[in-house]
Nucleic acid binder design. Structure first.
Lengths: 362, 362
DNA sequence: ATGTAGTGTGAGACCGGTCTCAGTTCGGAG
DNA sequence: CTCCGAACTGAGACCGGTCTCACACTACAT
């Protein structure tokens, strides 16, 4: 504890008080801007603070007030543009309300998510925005709720958890997009999502632990069933997300099947990107050989030839909404948990075509 | 201060100590893992902590140790994939070393950068990684250095500031890329960068306050001069970055000039994207009508037709390097400021062609 | 003159941790 | 059997803030 002797020791209220020749309490009142202080003393303290270049220690402040002015965000992967923009939007909104943001990456791993949450709670964040990696394993989230710390689930609802949610109409969006493909004449459809599963085949919805993806597959299957397509489950492809290589291999396998799909709905822009590149590599043409629709209006989807039709998610608005909901809670709002569903928008571009088989028969 | 009466008051060492029937000091020793404690007492305290679900208050810990275990990052814009990956890489490395990350966005505004720095210093981050928005206005950074808080400049060196730097060989990369364009036969070259300037014309290098961009333009001009191209300065286009609309307008103006450039070097993937879309909108073809090279290997550049040749920057490595440099400093390393220059790599794709004029004359 | 309300100030407790220091206990050496 | 040091424990100061409380002083009504 040689801190007090170092010449680089940060300046404290006590230092300022000494220089302004007032008590620590008075200096603190000026610096913290709370109690009543006479004009003359206030000026003297402010002058001393400036002269000493005083920087309040927010940590000490937090420890005594119990509020940190910080919100924690746990996302699956910041590298993913979807989350990148979400983070941007959340942090913009947070700053606007005088909050800061601590960021943690779960890499879509529950264990990492738990660890991140632990650290954030340790840092006494005032509230949390989380994209839960696994809806089967939510004890740690339940703990957060129980401890009364405001929590907003982002993009992925969890049933039976009394937390606010900001998400999109995933099921409807997937249903509608699938319908468009079916209406174009497709009967062999595939839904591709990033998910580690062993074996990597779809065996049932209980396998799906990312709630948004589950909803989307629900919608996909419902549309297929409504159109009388049999065994559409076989079109659900769980490409891994552990390594890019694994995912690429899954996509390759899908495209080189004996009866490959004639239309694909991609669960996110990253898988769609893999699919697009794999197709390019084997000179398959969109939409002639294969129709492609992806969730999320990623930058690249608008500049390919042809451009890709997408389900646009209002990410920026989702982030803003989530942050605002959270901050309202932090400020003491006590309404029951709300569930905000934002509408997606289908952007028609050039990646949906008529399947070859249809062209032959018509 | 009704905190102590609330049933949701967080558990403290004192609570644990009471339950384990030991002194606060002993409980703290077990929980903090520092002093000598007998095996029996240790177990008792751990049991009590678990029963009470004790979560250490990191803030209080930081206030008494003087270390926060947190590093602050200030980037220009997280939405930009370049920074997105940088943040990812920095936070991965930080976590690997047991540090957390607080993120702040400057939006490329010095004032916001100053404010962010103030907050981060207030939160007593152990170190900072900053991409300075303006190399003319660095007093706040100088203050950081003076206060002995470790600081690493990311991507943008600042002369005369005794801080570590991780950057790329911007000047050389721009020089080499420009040379390629010149060798392909181009004589009317443009360099487009995002920068607000009034009027939006290049009048000299003193106008350039983002050091990396300045280095690149240096390289661009040097290559032009070496090839005997006259007044290459006229090709430097400062498209705004305040609003997307402004930037788009600048690009439009550039393309519809009486003597438009036959080759463009784009300073980042966002301007390149604007250029690509503007060209698409007016049915200009790459590389027949215009050759295009961009800094940064953004996702979209590899899937356009034709794909865009780029100067690939090793962002992930830069982030890792920056974080490691910083953490070494935090851990007490005292070497003089280092300047790490990472090499870029030119990725040849299909966007460089022979200018029309050349084709006619040959 | 007294009451009384209000303003400004300082002393010191407090937040939840860390850490110093002064015992206490115990074992083994002399 | 005493002495010494090591191992353990508790009391309490400390970190840098906030905040309560008591007190001094003024101003104004009674």
């Amino acid at each position: 504890m040689d801190r007090k002797t170092s010449p680089f020791r940060p300046v404290t209220v006590a230092d300022v008080a000494r220089r302004a020749e007032v008590s620590k309490a008075t200096a603190a009142r000026v610096l913290g801007g709370y109690g009543p202080v006479s004009e003359e003393v206030k000026l003297r303290v402010q002058a001393a603070a400036k002269a000493l270049d005083y920087r309040p220690n927010e940590l000490a402040r937090s420890v005594s007030t119990g509020k940190s002015g910080t919100i924690g965000i746990v996302v699956g992967d910041i590298e993913n543009a979807f989350f990148g923009i979400a983070v941007r939007s959340i942090s913009d909104t947070a700053h606007r309300h005088g909050f800061n943001v601590i960021l943690a990456n779960s890499g879509e791993e529950v264990e990492a998510e738990k660890a991140a949450l632990k650290v954030l709670v340790g840092k006494r964040v005032d509230g949390l925005i989380v994209t839960p990696a696994d809806n089967r394993n939510v004890a740690h989230l339940r703990d957060i709720v129980r401890s009364r710390r405001p929590l907003v689930l982002f993009d992925r609802p969890i049933d039976g958890l009394a937390a606010d949610v900001v998400a999109t109409d995933d099921r409807d969006a997937a249903f509608a997009a699938t319908m468009r493909l079916i209406e174009a004449g497709h009967r062999r459809l595939a839904y591709v999502t990033a998910l580690n599963a062993e074996p990597p085949v779809f065996t049932g919805p209980e396998q799906l632990y990312t709630s948004s993806v589950k909803a989307r597959i629900d919608g996909f299957l419902a549309a297929c069933h409504a159109a009388g397509i049999e065994a559409p489950e076989r079109g659900v492809c769980l490409a891994g997300n552990a390594t890019a290589g694994l995912q690429r291999a899954s996509v390759e396998r899908l495209l080189s099947a004996v009866e490959p799909p004639t239309a694909i709905l991609a669960s996110d822009s990253l898988v769609a990107f893999e699919i697009f590149k794999a197709m390019q590599a084997r000179s398959l043409r969109i939409p002639d050989d294969l129709s492609l629709v992806s969730f999320y209006d990623a930058e690249w989807t608008s500049v390919t030839t042809p451009p890709i039709s997408v389900i646009d998610q209002p990410v920026y608005d989702m982030g803003t909404q989530a942050a605002e909901l959270l901050i309202a809670r932090i400020n003491g709002e006590t309404l029951p948990a709300r569930h905000c569903v934002l509408p997606t928008r289908f952007i028609e571009r050039g990646s949906i075509g008529v399947p070859r088989s249809m062209m032959a028969t018509t």
